[in-house]
Write a protein that binds this DNA or RNA. Structure first.
Lengths: 248, 248
DNA sequence: CTAGTCCACTGGTCAGACCAGTTGCTCTCC
DNA sequence: GGAGAGCAACTGGTCTGACCAGTGGACTAG
């Protein structure tokens, strides 16, 4: 007879589990309301502190929202990847993670999004992509921040067209972290305008490949462009892993 | 003069922010301890309930761990795959993330790991890969669990050879989540042994491509194998996004 | 030296009080 | 009749204080 180690489970955790189980079974759906805290105290037969601690956890997971004075009780929120995103951010910000790892990961994510988008995109979505190119062209004459915003819109659209929310979330996170690390260097580069123009040209090439539905070519182009753009910020000794992602 | 809408910030949220800011600035590092709850009450000049609600949020974010009776106060945690995995599992349960999205993500991660590993692998690492194939061959005659373990060792080694911790982590997490969702179906398939043999054959093909340093071919092979293996578990209407990842 | 007990701390939960915010209803004034 | 003010009953946010189980270290007895 073999026993295994036991672990006490806190009362508030039990409440969290019950609520999430009810969500998984469809017995609670977004838009609905939980009972008030005082009602939950009665139903769960615990103190109000315990209920509130459970609600803090659920809130942090993006499951519910509480508003003071709201007479209808805590609201179930639409499902979102807020908490997953938080964990991805924590992963990306681990101290030992290098810039080259982040850039490599971004190349993979962007490349994959573009590859899938090339196959799945509708004509309307292709039009939207063209519009983002126009916006990028306009933003060049404003400033680097405006160009970054337009660039962001381009990549967010690509990720949306890929219809994979994990790609979307990872892409957003790693793009944000990479940009946070080297944004100053890029914005203050002496040839900033030239870089923006070249970047726009590359984006247009990618859109062309997407238009023709050539996923592999589009992904390879995008990865090559990212390598060219970012390799200068990475130590020579770490570029090998990035090169592996652009070979034919 | 333009004013913007204001939003009250709760006291416990302020505490969460202060702790997370201190982490971001490196003033707190994993392994360190926060002061005890009663000490935090004094430092933040709030009630103990408020401190505890903040700690529930931080705990839910994977930032700290509290143990009853621990005389050293709440512990700062390093990033952990467990928390990332937990969030992915939550999303899968409510179908905010579909099986096809998870499988697609896995194809991308595994494919990328194999592509980079093809370039970076050392002769010693290639030997290690061969050993995992031997272990898989042996495990077929044991049972599906043993084969799964050997399969896991293969993929973990590949991810390690890729020298990208983001790929490693995401790969491990998503593999665990996918396997958790469909493991029962696979283990009880009537042709389980045939599936394991075929899977072993595919892994050997991948290792061959890695040996010759052909990253693109290895990655494509791996993604094709995963598509063949998993496509049956995905609705027809969602297979298009997976097909995009295996086209030439 | 080892085992047991005690003490001072830790975190988990409870009960009750008070406060600010929200909503709906009623009353008064124009 | 319509608009505004006031009130009551609720909501969630925070506070205070008490009690309990768990942990580790110090002390004592064998």
């Amino acid at each position: 007879m073999q026993f295994s180690p036991v672990q006490p489970v806190r009362a508030y955790q039990r409440i969290v589990e019950q609520v999430e189980d009810a969500l998984a079974r469809g017995e609670l759906v977004p838009g609905q309301r939980l009972p008030s805290e005082r009602e939950l105290v009665a139903q769960f037969a615990v103190s109000r502190s315990t209920v509130r601690e459970a609600l803090r956890v659920l809130e942090s997971n993006g499951v519910v929202r509480s508003r003071p004075g709201d007479p209808n009780g805590p609201e179930i929120l639409p499902f979102s990847q807020v908490a997953l995103r938080k964990q991805m951010v924590r992963l990306a910000r681990v101290e030992e993670v290098t810039l080259s790892e982040l850039i490599g990961f971004r190349m993979i994510m962007d490349g994959a999004a573009i590859q899938v988008a090339s196959r799945l995109r509708t004509p309307e979505e292709l039009d939207e992509l063209e519009q983002t190119l126009v916006a990028m062209r306009t933003a060049i004459d404003v400033d680097f921040d405006a160009f970054s915003q337009a660039d962001l819109a381009f990549h967010e659209l690509i990720a949306r067209i890929s219809r994979n929310s994990l790609i979307q979330t990872c892409n957003e996170v790693v793009r944000g972290v990479v940009l946070g690390l080297i944004s100053d260097k890029i914005a203050h580069a002496p040839n900033s305008r030239a870089l923006m123009l070249e970047s726009l040209h590359h984006h247009a090439e990618v859109v062309d490949a997407i238009r023709t539905g050539n996923g592999n070519a589009a992904a390879r182009l995008a990865r090559q462009n990212m390598f060219d753009y970012y390799a200068g910020y990475v130590p020579d000794s770490e570029q090998e892993t990035l090169r592996a992602l652009i070979e034919e």
